[in-house]
């Protein structure tokens, strides 16, 4: 068969016309299937939630690992985020609005968006990747099978403590991140923008609504669930070998980050 015949054959034409649609359809189908599997897994975790206190030690260990150990990274990212947010507000609006509105803008930005989203992204990178690598490595070494064989439910002993730790620590870390970001903004305001502490803090209080804070907390709670689910499921479904674990880690971080941004928008739509 020569090249011309190949190009014009029905199968080649079908490939040209339908190929991209089939590829897109396949990806959408796989995405939907993974969404269903994630929701089913979430249901399995929630069903076991009433027994979370039976394994207090495991939950406490995870709480320390997820929460306390993430603090140093969070301190650095939050202070600089707050600082740059305040600096940009001043740079963009200083000629048009009074100085105290710079504090107002920074505060709103930090509480509603920057605090929860950046905490979520930082934790997806630091803790979500570690979770996927740990569970993927356990799967590779047959530790998950060993648990099942010993009649120890991996969801109860591995997923549930981490889930509880995430939904407990994410809002807590977000509050800390908000405070540190506001502190970072104050440092820039006082040291670089020639604003007084009074101007900055009175700006923070101006137009403050409690829903600014609550929407951020709700977001962080949802982000905690997302990071935990994506990390655990990617690890539990990891392929074999170092490459399989590496791909699971990448998938955990990428899917958590994408979902964080999507759900950030969804919550924003619901609240504002």
């Amino acid at each position: 068969m020569n090249e011309g015949e190949t190009k014009n054959s029905p199968s080649a034409l079908r490939q040209v016309v339908l190929g991209p649609w089939e590829a897109v359809g396949g990806k959408v189908g796989r995405g939907l299937k993974e969404c269903c599997l994630s929701l089913a897994f979430l249901a399995r975790v929630l069903v076991r939630f009433p027994i979370v206190l039976k394994n207090r030690e495991l939950t406490l260990k995870q709480t320390i690992s997820i929460g306390v150990s993430s603090l140093p990274l969070l301190v650095v990212t939050s202070i600089f985020t707050g600082a740059v947010a305040t600096f940009q507000c001043a740079f963009q609006f200083r000629n048009f609005v009074p100085d105290k509105f710079i504090g107002t803008a920074a505060c709103k930005m930090i509480l509603i968006e920057l605090g929860p989203v950046l905490t979520g992204l930082v934790l997806a990178g630091r803790v979500g990747s570690a979770l996927a690598a740990e569970i993927g490595s356990m799967k590779e070494k047959e530790e998950l099978d060993a648990m099942t064989v010993l009649d120890l439910d991996p969801v109860r002993y591995l997923a549930l403590p981490r889930f509880a730790a995430f939904i407990l620590m994410m809002p807590a870390l977000t509050v800390i991140s908000d405070l540190l970001a506001i502190f970072g903004g104050w440092l820039v305001a006082v040291l670089s923008l020639d604003m007084t502490t009074y101007t900055y803090t009175s700006g923070l209080q101006l137009y403050f609504q409690t829903k600014d804070l609550y929407s951020g907390m709700l977001k962080s709670f949802i982000f905690g669930i997302i990071i935990c689910l994506m990390g655990y499921l990617s690890g539990a479904n990891a392929g074999s070998g170092a490459r399989g674990v590496g791909e699971a880690v990448m998938k955990a971080v990428v899917s958590a980050c994408v979902l964080i941004l999507i759900f950030d928008f969804v919550v924003a739509l619901c609240f504002f």
Binding site: K141, E142, E143, D145, A146, M147, T148, V149, L150, D151
Partner: peptide, 19 residues
């Protein structure tokens, strides 16, 4: 398999110890 799990033990190829 829930009912038979505790009747059975398994030694995995690489031990599969909890590290």
């Amino acid at each position: 398999t829930k009912t038979i799990r505790q009747k059975m033990g398994m030694l995995f190829q690489n031990g599969a110890l909890f590290d």
